[in-house]
């Protein structure tokens, strides 16, 4: 193969067939607000905890949509409410976070 001096990046295609969405759907039923999120990241930018423990609500929501385990991140939320003040979609983020904390079955 000719060396062009760069390589193809590893595929970042998401194969949704391999994603376990059950938790997300269960959550969306209880908390339909989550479907309104456009993953703008305002919440993360405003987050009080973020700089200290990496908390990012945008990543939590994204993770749930990709079927990854977000428990550790969620546990770092201090419920300060700044994310709900800045969310352009008017999502009740604190309640969303509380519901996420309850929906896991340990």
């Amino acid at each position: 193969m000719i060396d062009f001096g760069f390589q193809k990046a590893k595929s970042s295609t998401v194969n949704l067939d391999n994603v376990d969405m059950r938790l997300y759907y269960a959550l969306a039923e209880k908390e339909p607000d989550i479907k309104r999120c456009m993953e703008c990241g305002s919440c993360t930018a405003a987050c009080t905890s973020g700089p200290f423990n990496g908390m990012s609500l945008r990543q939590v929501i994204h993770g749930l949509q990709r079927g990854t385990d977000v428990r550790q991140m969620v546990s770092g939320c201090m419920l300060c409410g700044k994310c709900s003040m800045v969310c352009p979609r008017g999502i009740n983020t604190r309640h969303l976070l509380l519901t996420i904390s309850r929906i896991y079955t340990k």
Partner: peptide
């Protein structure tokens, strides 16, 4: 009295 499956944990906060 409510139970949360994911408890808050701030031990990593430096």
């Amino acid at each position: 009295v409510r139970k949360y499956a994911v408890p808050g944990d701030f031990s990593s906060v430096n």
